[in-house]
Computed example of a mutant assay.
Amino acid sequence: MRAKDTANHVYTSLRKEILNLTIVPAQMMREQDICDRFEASRTPVHVALERLCDAGLLEFVPYKGVRATLLKFSFIYQIIMMRTVLETKVLTQFSQKADPFALERCRHMLRNQEILLASDQFEPSVFYAIDSALHQTWFNEVGFPLFWDAIQDSEVYYTRFRMLDIVEMHNFKEIVQEHAVLLSLLETQQYDQMEGVITYHLFGGIRRMQHMLQSDLSSYFSDAQTIGSYLDRVLSFKRPDCLSE
């Protein structure tokens, strides 16, 4: 394998492991261990590590190696808040457009999540991929793919946080139920309820992990001491009545 191909392989493999939390925040790795694992020389491995550092997923630690970067809770909260504003607008426009083919694609993805939940071959990363594809469909259908790209550019913090929710809490049924309610609101054009449901849905990860965020998972965050103040805000969001039915 050429040095460039080796560097790309190491970069792609490690990036995937960081985003799916096989490599957790603050985890240390020695460059030589990475070379041994991929049976590669130091030059392409170092190139791959520099790219991951540039992406904000790793950081070099002098004389020790590299470390997966910590999450920043204040950024995660702001990204979710930004997303609630954008996605409320997107959902309203999507519902007004009411394209039956797009709605059917959404139903198909929801069904795939339900089938996956019932499968003995369940994979959290597959569930996450379907989840993302469902939300992306709404953005694409109303002509706002750049909004979705901006959300995905927050992978350093937000993507890893969403995966943390999936890996740690395993509350997939709740997520699927909320998707089902959102689709029902889209089909029946109940615009007045969309903001409350999407806000409750998108902040669900923080709500589900509320106890662990300040205990077992606190070491994953650079600003763990601020988490409590944000939790108070999130827990003040009332569960919409339509989610209780």
Score class of each variant (00 low, 15 high):
S132K: 12
V85S: 04
A48P: 05
R51L: 13
N140F: 07
E104A: 15
L134Q: 00
H135M: 14
L58M: 14
E39L: 08
I115W: 00
E114N: 05
A40M: 06
M163L: 08
Q78Y: 06
V45N: 01
G65D: 06
F101V: 12
S154L: 10
S132G: 10
V90M: 04
P44C: 10
Q78A: 08
D153G: 13
G143M: 13
I151M: 03
F161H: 03
P62Q: 14
I80C: 03
K72A: 06
G143Y: 08
M81W: 09
K97H: 09
K72E: 13
L110P: 01
V66G: 01
L116K: 06
I80F: 04
E114W: 03
W148V: 00
E50M: 13
V66K: 00
D165H: 11
S95D: 06
V47A: 09
T88A: 07
R111A: 02
L117T: 02
F73A: 03
L117P: 04
E123A: 11
E50N: 13
R105S: 08
L134K: 00
D165A: 04
I166H: 01
W148G: 00
R111N: 04
V126L: 15
I80N: 01
R83M: 09
S74H: 14
E104W: 10
L70F: 07
Q136N: 13
T84I: 14
V47F: 04
N112K: 15
E123H: 12
S74E: 15
L103S: 03
T43S: 14
A68G: 06
S95Y: 03
F122P: 04
V85H: 02
Q121H: 13
P124I: 04
A129W: 02
P44N: 11
V47C: 06
I130A: 01
A150N: 08
V85W: 02
H135G: 10
E104M: 14
F161Q: 04
K89D: 11
M109K: 10
E104L: 15
V126G: 02
R111W: 03
F122I: 05
A40K: 01
E87F: 15
S154Y: 11
R67P: 02
C106K: 07
G143I: 14
G56S: 09
R107Q: 12
P44Q: 08
K64W: 06
F60N: 08
P145T: 07
H108F: 11
S154A: 15
V167R: 11
L58N: 05
F38T: 15
E123I: 07
A129V: 05
D149P: 02
L103W: 01
C106L: 15
A48K: 00
L146Q: 14
F75G: 00
F60V: 10
L103T: 04
I80K: 01
L58E: 05
F147I: 12
H170Q: 12
I115N: 01
L71G: 03
F122A: 05
Y77D: 03
L117K: 10
S154F: 12
T69V: 12
M82V: 03
M109L: 13
F94Y: 13
N140S: 09
R111Y: 03
R51D: 11
M81H: 11
K64C: 07
F94E: 03
E39D: 14
V126A: 14
L49G: 05
L146C: 07
P62I: 06
W138V: 15
V47D: 07
H46N: 11
S74N: 13
E123L: 13
K64Y: 10
Y128K: 10
F127L: 02
M81F: 12
Q152D: 05
I79Y: 07
L164T: 09
A102R: 07
F101Q: 09
